[in-house]
Design a protein around this nucleic acid. Sequence first.
DNA 1: CTGTTAGCGCCTTCAG
DNA 2: CTGAAGGCGCTAACAG
Lengths: 329, 329
Amino acid sequence: MASIKDVAKKAGVAASTVSKVLNNYPNVSEETKKKVEDAIRELNFIPNAAAAALSSKQTGRIALLINEKEQSQAIDEIDMQYLTGSIVRAREKHMDVQTIFFSMLKEKTYEDMVNYLRAQSIEGLVIFGLSKNDTEIMRLINSKMFKCVCVDAPVVSETASTVWVDQYKAQYDIAKEMLLHNPAKSILYLAGKKNSFVMEGRLKAINDIAKEQGITLKVEQGDFSEKKARKITLKLGRKYDLIMCASDMMAIGAMLALTDLDIFRPVAGFDGITLMGYAGKKMTTVKQDFKEIARAAIDEAESLLLGNPGKETIMPHKIVRIEYLDVIH
Amino acid sequence: MASIKDVAKKAGVAASTVSKVLNNYPNVSEETKKKVEDAIRELNFIPNAAAAALSSKQTGRIALLINEKEQSQAIDEIDMQYLTGSIVRAREKHMDVQTIFFSMLKEKTYEDMVNYLRAQSIEGLVIFGLSKNDTEIMRLINSKMFKCVCVDAPVVSETASTVWVDQYKAQYDIAKEMLLHNPAKSILYLAGKKNSFVMEGRLKAINDIAKEQGITLKVEQGDFSEKKARKITLKLGRKYDLIMCASDMMAIGAMLALTDLDIFRPVAGFDGITLMGYAGKKMTTVKQDFKEIARAAIDEAESLLLGNPGKETIMPHKIVRIEYLDVIH
DNA sequence: CTGTTAGCGCCTTCAG
DNA sequence: CTGAAGGCGCTAACAG
């Protein structure tokens, strides 16, 4: 377990010089740099991150806050994409990442959270699936004690950034696509949770397009879950030409209800999870690239840690049509 | 950001004494202990983990090695359960956890892995979904440089433990249950990947029960994926009374094929993922509690770090029947 | 451009 | 049972 001193000795320089090449300081001659690098290689030296963090007071450590949706019977593809995307990206950037689930924070006050995060020497947060109800986390973000990147929540400040797709445009695009392929007089729209940040743009979009095209629109309050969607569709599905949902899980619930009712209606979801392919035929959805979103979030976190101000990043989306029971690629 | 010194000053003792109460050393009087604890509370003091690790040379840090199964179109419920289970449990035990995906290790040699892990001050590994093909990881385990807990792989040594369900018994149990409810003369068994550790016991079990009950058994080589299972079933499903699979994903593939063929056969899976409920009716599966398995793995990792020798832990399983399109609870 | 000097916050002997 | 002293491995001024 070689240390920086061993490297210094071997290279015939001072420990601080080794530190300088390790951290890409400008003032090191090519010659000594090479000597040091050779020594590092020969000794198979690996810097001790704990010591570096202790000394520099900078850990470069961020936490991933994942809101596992227990109540919506979710198939966990989205969270998993978020996780692999961010962890792999963080590794590429040599950032240290800590995964935290919302369930671990339940009942915790703002103060508890700060303590916990500080104990872990965490400097930044990437938050997935924040809703307006998460007041303690909102306090955390507003306190500016940590750099925060919020995915799917429009929180921008000096220390906070947002990464998400254009919710209005996505909902508008898919509605247009649906109406193009399925001329209709009425739409049943199953909305997600009331305090979800993503719903604002989506509701505006669906209202706008209904108005533009003179279509009857019925909006029902759902909660993103398959169960609730199934129930609502069972009750109202018969009366509308088209069913559009705020999540793929809801679309699946709607499909199951339509099967129960033994009728057919075109169904649209939102997300583009693989499971949609197993749920039924002739479905349409908005496909988001969650892995890419996560990578962008990590990039943004790094930027914030570097001292840049927060900003908004809009990620692209696609409209996908599934013709028959199969997998989305 | 109070330090141990501040606490010492406030409590009127030396820093080393504070350290002793922090780490539950025996030789501290109740009285001073109390004084110190009060000071800690008042100052809202949190020990700096990096400093402690640096000083004690013990990080208590373990890595979770997750084998995300990209090729089997997996719905990621299992991995997610593993992750939440282990991370929450590790938090309860104040252990530090690092998540690593197999994909990050691809192409990496044993030496690279050691370097990477050492750079992260990792002392122990919990490995999910190891197969016999992962030779470099096997070398890592055998090197005894890290304490290892393998989930679903029978690797037991001084520094390695195993946590899994009894594969033989589980497969035997579900086969028996299937035959009880569906008297049959022949079974089509869709096996998983050849080099999977879990298949050994399962294949033995299915062979044994077929022999015992005088049933024709046809074993086909699958790969745990829905796709392959669908293909095989399309070709052979018609000829057998029962279809049993080595994973739920395969069972879903088999169901889809049966739908294509427009025939009915009882289908059995293995795992107990939620998605099974969306795939069809009258399915049977082995339900494993992945979250509980992960918790047990963390407990075992802690035990290894404490210096205990490796051992095998067998987790319970259940047989579950799904009657109609719905969610498994 | 390089080396010296001081810590970062904590743990761990070792005296007392 | 308690405190003083030294050091873990690295970084960050500051001299030179």
